[in-house]
Structures are given as structure tokens and as C-alpha cells.
Design a protein around this nucleic acid. Structure first.
Lengths: 462, 462
DNA sequence: CTGAAAGCGCTTACAG
DNA sequence: CTGAAAGCGCTTACAG
């Protein structure tokens, strides 16, 4: 009996055969790609060597090439010997176990691949008992279908791409929570593309397309031109914008009702008796900031108050600028100074509050400050910030639902994926606008009495 | 000439043929899955109809079934007619264009699939001119290789899974930034698994395994038992823990140096003359919080100060509790009251500052407050928070690098993937501990003079 | 209800 | 340097 030293291989011509009852295996040199070192077990049955199936643990007897085949009973330890063991990709490296395939499960459960596949796909055509049996075999052997093979055969990946900006993570986090909740429900996974800066974004979109692996795209607060996406969408790729920054793009979108939110904020302030209300703006090239500012102006005008241009300050979401502009606000003579400030974001509000403190003004006694977003720390700072909450989680959910319906999940609903898209008019694209909510905390109080009845105009010249 | 009304199909037996020079195509009924409505173009060359290749725009003449084939010169408008057009997955729905395959590129450039594939894989064996030509054809036709097919053939997905908790998003965001930077560099993409709550986590891990699509796993701040992951890792799946919460898990990990960070924090406070320093703890079942607390105690002891148990308060990262426990701290008689508080997180520090304000104490004049994390708003609040910054971005980068080296990217480095993993001793697992940095802002000041020289013990009983 | 066969779109030895 | 062929692990009509 030849003493082998740890290598067992399968002869090429045996690769496609299932070995039952009798094993015909040869020894191969160590450096061969056919070596299966991890599978070598103790000598048994008088054969020269035994290979152990890496996952099932079942045995395959082996012998040297020149020795005659040894007759052993392998009926009870069925072992699939197929090319998997010797194929390049399946080469067992680092002791990593070879993965079972549908073939193994078929063999192990005594059925054909087709039947196993039908079980895998919940086909009603399979006998319940058969089904249970196959499922048991799978579970016992920790079988996991190959994602790539399934995707290739089915022609779809159950993967959606989510493109997010490198910053604004409170928002991204909440949106993701919503998205994850619904994608999980439908058996989709998310592949995350993070735009780290402007330069990367173009190549990022390229990547998304190049990888060709997502069935749809969720684009969060894009900072970059959307033409490539529009084109993609017209070619049939499902795309949904969440919290879009542009105004009128020919793409389905989910946004917060920024106008209404800002109106609510202004109403709250005016109900507290404020009339000289300042606005520290965000990035005015964003649609959302434009909407919030429009609401600010409209609210004042409808209350019969002429907006004072002195009370509008650009902040651009840049901390230093926010503070500098706010200081100007608080350096105004007492009768021209605002009694309340509507900040277009919570972080902006923080800057306003800092400037107020520097000017010796108390919040909310001397000046009220109202934010937008309701970020995590808004409730924790002093004083807790009154703000407008954006429904990011809900927005994420709705966006994911929209996207999945465009993709057409193979659940019950057929999806709209079958409709032609190309020339759809702008008006027909779904555009969800989600309501915001006012979160009343402590940073807004009644307008100081001395100034609250000064007349119906913000401008001192009126 | 038969008038067709918009449907062109390919006869079954022609599916595998490339049609050169002469097209033999038949009309099919509208409801047939062979219909290619989007491809119908104007009549040309005396044929009854012309189909336009959906992507290349090239033409295929067609005629009714019973009409004789029309002889046209298609040599210059080469058209691949293969099963792709009529296969179930390729059915053109919603006007979505059929995707080009490697076959089309091969035909379009007059080469074999193999050569095109070699070009795709940057093989040096291809003639540079050939290469350029093929690349040009691909670009012109916007060819994108099928991700699924590549993954199946290559046996690897270039996808890594990232498991993140539903909360703590500042951290997740920063870590992701780092991870994304390095994965992008190596052509890997991230698939994001969000653990929304405890109950979901188990099934989430199941999903990760079941989907079988990632080549490796990055687990961020896991909240759940790690046994399944350890087992997975021993079976050969690359796994790296980032910011792990447990102490000694048999898994490679990247963490911040919490002990050292806390020591630095304490040193800063003590250099400012503080001796009665309180600690508001985070979740003490977390390794990081234990380390920070150990550092707190060690720092005091090494300075010859006996830690006063009264000055240690559990906060558990719960805002209400943090505030309540902090109030107890500030309700202490003046000589027992801490002059500084080391909060185990920035949000915890916010709670401490709120309680201080409620107690009429000024920060930092009456009491200094020091945080941990350096979250976004730490610089924006009043007063700006002095804190320990965790190098999350860097941690993400290193973790990704670690993971990729375990996977063995097919770049130049062979990776460590070839080594056996199974029985690796704990000590051999890579465990990166990244340095933190002290960010000095305004929330810490010198200890109040009246109490700064009271002797070397925190306890009043000493 | 089950099996044999062809196909999904790539990659990769193996021959020329 | 290029091409023909087999293979990756699934799915899906099509016959029984």
C-alpha cells in the first residue's frame, strides 16, 4: 500500500462523474491545483487514503494511481466528486471549505437539480414531503445558494444602489433606516456608494453603471449634475431621488415639505408675538432652502409685515459665516434687532445661539431661535432647540417602496417596470412630498413685551 | 410587401446564429415574448421592415414569414441576432434596452469572446492595437460587463458586507468614509446591512450568510453575540471588527485607544489643577467604556488621589439618566462638588452641561466638562466642548485594508487569504489600536482657586 | 410532480 | 497573440 503524504486528487476524466459505491481517485503532486489538502483524513477500509468532504464531512476513499481500485462500500457515505473540487475557483485555499452546490444537495437528497431549484424558488409544484426533505438536507449541510449564479440565471440581482453624499450624515442615517426597513422586507440588499467629494462623484456614477449590479438606484441629496441619471432612467433603470436638491428634474422623487415646514415655523414664532423675525439662510442653490425662504417671506407678508432685507443673512451652512452674520444681526440697535431668528438648519441655529450669547442676549428671553432638521443633539443642548423635524425615516421608506415598485419585485405586485418610460411627461413622475412636524422645545419664547406692539412692519423706515 | 405593424421577431432556429449579410427574420404576434417593439425602425433596402439594434443603433432588415428573404448588404451594419433578444430575462420590457454582452463586443470588433475577455481583464497577452480597438468598441457602445456573470466565472464578488448598528451614526458615518475610500481604490463595493434592533440582528447575520455575496465582512460596533461570526471566520470568511464592544473575541479588530484617550483627558484636567474630578459613565458592558473608566481611576491614583465613589455616576448613554445623575453631582455641598466632569461621550457631556446650568453653575468657570468622541456639534454648542476625538475615518481605512488583505485582492499583493485560519491562536490575530487626540475647546478651564489646594484626596473623609 | 437539457454572460486553461 | 471549448452554479421551459 502506497504511503501518501497529504494530497488527494481526482483524475480529470472523473470530474463530471458522481462516484457511487466505488472510488477511483489518484494521488497528485502537492503543487497541483487539484490538491485538496484540507480534506485528507485517516486511512480506512483498507484503502490508501480517505478524503473527507469538506462540508458534509462524508468520506471518499482514495488510492494511488497505480494501485488497483479498492472496493469499499461508499453507498452510505455518498460523496459527490465533481469538477468543483478541482476547478480553479474552487481550489481550497487557506483551509477554507469548498461550498456545496445545488448538485451536492440534489445528490445528497437523491433528487435532481431541477427539483432542488424548484424548492429553492418556493414552487408550488413540489411535493410538500419532498420539499421538507430537501430543506432539511440544505439546513443540515448549511447550504447557501450562490448569489452570483442566481443573479446570472435570473437576470436580476435583488440589489439596489444607494448613492449618498459624504456629509449630512444625520439625514443619511435616518433615510437609510427607512430604506433598510423596506428593502429587507422584500429581500433586497443595499449597496452603498459614498460620494466623498465633488471630484469623485462623476467617477462614482460611472462605477455604479460599470458595476451593473444594482436593479435600481436611490440617490440621496445629490450634489452633482443629474443628466446621467436622467438618461439612465429613460433607458429603463429605476431611479428615485430622495431629498433632492434640484428643483425640476425628470426623475421620481421623495422630499420633505420644506415650504410647509417653514410656514409652520413662522406661524409658531408669530403666535408667540414675534414680528421682527430674521432668517439665516442655508445654501440658496438648494431647492429646500429656497422653499424655506419663500415660506419665510410669504408668512411675513400674509401677516401684513413688510420683510426687512436687513434681517435676511446668508449662512451657507458654514459655521464661521453663520456666526459672523448672526453677530451683525445682534449688533443692530435694540429697536431694529430681531426678537426671533429662523435658522434654516439646526447647526445654523447653534451658530445663531452662540452669537446671541456673545452679544449678551439670552435665549429665549431676549431672542428666540428656531431650527430645521431636528438632529440628534437638538434635544440635548442648552436650551433645547425648537425646530422643524424632517421625516427622514419615512422618506427613506417611501423612496424604497417607490423604487421597488419601479423595479417590480417578484412579490405579488407586478410593478410598473413593464410600462415604457422614455417619454413620460414630467407631470407623470411620482413626486412625494412628506409633511414635517414642529418640535416645540425651549429655544423659542414670547416676544419681549417692550417691542412686541411696535406696528405691523419689520422695516424701521415704514 | 406585407405591411407590418410594429413587431419583429427572430425565429427560434436562428437564435444562435450570427446573421451576416443576409437577415432572415419573421414577424411574430404582438403578445409574443419575442416582440421587440422598441427596435422597429423605418423600412429600408426594399425589405419589409428594419429592426434597429437597441443599443448600437445598427440595423437588421426583416420580412414577413412567408415572404422570401431579401438580399441586403448588412456587412456594414453588422447585427448580432442571438438568443439574448428572446430569452426570458432579456425580454425587452418597458422599452428598456437590451444589454450588450461580450458576444456583441466580440462580433462588433471582429474578434473572439476570449480576446475581448482578455482585454476586459487587462491581460498583457493582447496586442496593444487590438486592445485599443476593443476598448473603443466597448466605449462607443456603452458596454458594461455583467456583474453576475463575472462574479460567477471568477468565483468572487468584489463586494464586502458592512454590518452597522441602527444608532451611533456619527461614528458609522466616519468609519464608512474611511472604508469607502479604500474599498473604492481596490474596486470593491460595500453592501450595507443595518441592524435596526436587537431582534433583527440574528436574522441579519443569517441574511449576510444566506446572500453569500460578500467576500468579507466588516462588523461595526456589534451589539450582539459574536459566536456565529467567529465560526464563520474560522471557516475561512474574512471578518474584521471595527470599534468592537467586546473584550477578547477571536477576530481581527480595529479599535480606538480608549484607555490612552481617557488618560489624556484626565491629564488635561489635572494640568488645569482639577483634583475633584467626576466621571459620568457610558454603558459599562462595552469594552471601550471599561477602558475609559479604568484610565480615569488609574490617572487619579497615579496622581496620588483616592477616587471618591460618590463622583462616579452611571449614565448608560441615556439622556434622562445622565441629567439626573449629574444633578446629584452638582447638588453636593460646595466642598465635595466636583470641579470637573469627565463624560464618557459628547452627548453625555451635553447632559452634564445642562444639569450644571440648571444648578446655576457656569461652564467652565465653575465646573469643567470634558467629552469623548468629538461629534459634529461639539464645536458648535455653547461653550464649545473640549473632547477626545476618535479617529473613526482612519479606523475605517485600516479595517478595510485589513479585510482586503485577508480577502486577498487580486492586485499585486497575494493577501494572507492563502494561510490556514482555523486554529490561529488569539495572539496572532491582528488587533489594531488607533491613537485618539485631545481637542481643546472652551468647556474646560482652570480649577476654581478656592478649592484647588485642598489636599491630595478626592474623599472628604480622607 | 420530477428530470434532462439548454441557457444566463462571463473566465480560463489549452491548442494553435 | 487569438480562438474553440468547457466550466462557474444556478433557472426554466419542455417532456415525461
Amino acid at each position: 500500500m502506497n504511503e501518501l503524504t497529504g494530497a488527494i486528487g481526482v483524475p480529470r476524466d472523473a470530474q463530471k462523474e458522481w462516484v457511487r459505491g466505488r472510488a477511483r481517485v489518484m494521488a497528485v503532486p502537492d503543487r497541483s491545483r487539484q490538491v485538496i489538502p484540507a480534506c485528507v483524513g485517516p486511512v480506512q477500509h483498507g484503502a490508501s487514503m480517505v478524503a473527507r468532504h469538506p462540508v458534509t464531512g462524508q468520506c471518499l476513499t482514495a488510492e494511488t494511481d497505480d494501485a488497483p481500485p479498492v472496493d469499499v462500500d461508499l453507498a452510505r457515505c455518498y460523496v459527490p466528486v465533481h469538477s468543483r473540487w478541482t476547478s480553479p475557483t474552487a481550489t481550497i485555499k487557506g483551509g477554507r471549505m469548498a461550498k456545496l452546490t445545488i448538485r451536492d444537495i440534489a445528490a445528497l437528497s437523491g433528487l435532481s437539480k431541477s427539483t432542488v431549484s424548484l424548492v429553492l424558488n418556493n414552487s408550488p409544484k413540489v411535493d410538500p414531503a419532498t420539499r421538507r426533505h430537501v430543506l432539511a438536507v440544505m439546513r443540515r449541510n448549511r447550504y447557501v445558494p450562490s448569489f452570483a449564479a442566481t443573479a446570472l440565471a435570473k437576470g436580476s440581482t435583488r440589489l439596489i444602489g444607494m448613492v449618498v453624499p459624504g456629509l449630512s450624515w444625520h439625514m443619511v442615517a435616518s433615510i437609510n433606516l427607512g430604506v433598510a426597513a423596506v428593502t429587507e422586507q422584500h429581500g433586497f440588499d443595499i449597496i452603498l456608494y459614498t460620494a466623498t467629494n465633488d471630484r469623485d462623484y462623476g467617477s462614482l456614477i460611472d462605477r455604479v453603471l460599470t458595476s451593473s449590479m444594482s436593479s435600481g438606484l436611490l440617490v440621496v441629496s445629490h450634489e452633482q449634475p443629474l443628466e446621467p441619471l436622467v438618461q439612465l432612467h429613460q433607458e429603463g433603470m429605476p431611479v428615485v431621488l430622495v431629498n433632492t436638491i434640484d428643483a425640476d428634474v425628470a426623475l421620481p422623487s421623495v422630499t420633505a415639505d420644506n415650504y410647509d415646514g417653514a410656514r409652520t415655523a413662522m406661524d409658531h414664532l408669530m403666535q408667540l408675538g414675534h414680528e421682527r423675525i430674521a432668517c439665516v439662510q442655508g445654501l440658496m442653490r438648494y431647492r429646500c432652502c429656497q422653499d424655506r425662504y419663500r415660506a419665510y417671506l410669504d408668512a411675513l407678508r400674509e401677516a401684513g409685515i413688510q420683510p426687512d432685507p436687513e434681517l435676511t443673512k446668508p449662512g451657507d451652512f458654514v459655521p464661521e459665516q453663520i456666526r459672523a452674520r448672526s453677530r451683525e444681526l445682534f449688533a443692530l440697535p435694540a429697536d431694529q434687532r430681531p426678537t426671533a431668528v429662523f435658522a434654516q438648519s439646526d447647526v445654523t441655529a447653534y451658530g445663531v445661539m452662540t452669537a446671541a450669547a456673545e452679544a449678551g442676549l439670552r435665549v429665549p428671553e431676549d431672542v428666540s431661535v428656531l431650527g430645521f432638521d431636528d438632529i440628534e443633539s437638538a434635544a440635548q443642548i442648552r436650551p433645547p432647540l425648537t425646530t422643524i423635524q424632517q421625516p427622514f425615516v419615512e422618506m427613506g421608506k417611501r423612496a424604497a417602496e417607490l423604487l421597488l415598485s419601479e423595479i417590480g419585485t417578484n412579490d405579488d405586485d407586478p410593478g410598473t417596470g413593464a410600462e415604457p418610460v422614455g417619454e413620460k411627461p414630467l407631470a407623470d413622475l411620482p413626486r412625494l412630498v412628506m409633511p414635517t412636524s414642529l418640535i416645540v422645545r425651549a429655544s423659542c419664547g414670547p416676544a419681549p413685551v417692550t417691542r412686541s406692539r411696535r406696528g405691523r412692519s419689520q422695516t424701521t423706515k415704514a
